[in-house]
């Protein structure tokens, strides 16, 4: 495995008014790592993820994506975001566009690909996520699991170097969780660098290369997922895992 650093956070602080959400995060993620982030709600894990592609501005610290400082105001974040795929808890598919149009939009408008090129990319990706027969369906005609798989395909259409997953199975009915996790597992096996905020401990144990436990806006503990789940060191980690396992 290469040790090329993909994402680096240095002393990241983030607050909403007087509420401190992130209180000094230091983190380095290298190529092909699958970092699973866990923690109680309000611990700042989703916020940290959203800071990684500048959806949220930070007040202090530095975030470097593939060598580019995205906290520098001179950086063109649109350019950097093309290399970071993001998948959301609430899917956020474009409801006025069919599944394939959702996947095609960014290649067409951002990468300026031709329609036929974009369509080829989109069809291939829909096959990858197992939805080739739903290409012309609209989001409200798809189940939650199907919508989320389209959302993954949409993010992959930009050929990103890394993917951020923000509690992508939390809004799904239990029987639909597996189909989404399977797609993510395939991605991880293909060597994609991934940061995954999740409560799915089975997925973490099986696919994760590193686990981070956050609480109160700081990283409390980090180690191999199997190691952390079996032998948590910090009291807070023990307490949290005791509740979710």
């Amino acid at each position: 495995m290469s040790s090329e650093v993909m994402i680096e956070l240095k002393g990241v602080h983030k607050n909403y008014g007087t509420l401190e959400v992130l209180r000094g995060i230091d983190l380095q993620i290298t190529k092909s790592e699958v970092v699973v982030v866990i923690g109680p709600s309000g611990s700042g894990k989703s916020t940290m993820l959203r800071c990684m592609n500048a959806l949220e501005p930070i007040q202090k610290g530095t975030i470097i994506i593939e060598g580019i400082d995205i906290t520098n105001p001179k950086t063109n974040v649109n350019k950097v975001r093309q290399k970071i795929g993001m998948v959301f808890q609430s899917f956020n598919l474009f409801p006025h566009k069919s599944a394939i149009e959702n996947v095609m939009l960014a290649p067409l408008k951002v990468l300026k690909k031709s329609r036929s090129e974009a369509e080829t990319i989109a069809r291939d990706l829909l096959v990858t996520v197992g939805l080739s027969e739903k290409a012309d369906a609209y989001p409200d005609q798809l189940s939650g699991g199907q919508q989320q798989r389209v959302a993954i395909a949409r993010a992959l259409a930009m050929q990103p170097d890394m993917m951020l997953f923000d509690e992508v199975t939390s809004a799904l009915d239990p029987e639909l969780v597996a189909e989404v996790l399977n797609v993510m597992k395939e991605l991880a096996l293909g060597g994609m660098t991934m940061v995954v905020v999740t409560h799915e401990m089975g997925f973490a144990r099986e696919v994760g290369t590193r686990m981070i436990f956050m609480d109160g806006g700081v990283i409390v503990e980090e180690s191999d997922p199997r190691e952390m789940i079996a032998n948590p060191k910090e009291e807070r980690t023990k307490k949290f895992l005791g509740m979710v396992l």
């Binding site: 350019k79 970071i84 959301f88 609430s90 474009f94 951002v110 949409r154």
Partner: peptide, 21 residues
């Protein structure tokens, strides 16, 4: 919903592109 703009921006679209499309 705010998530629509966020999804568009996270794909690398600019603000005007996200508004328009």
């Amino acid at each position: 919903h705010r998530g629509q703009m966020e999804a568009a921006r996270s794909l690398g679209m600019t603000y005007p592109q996200s508004m328009r499309y």
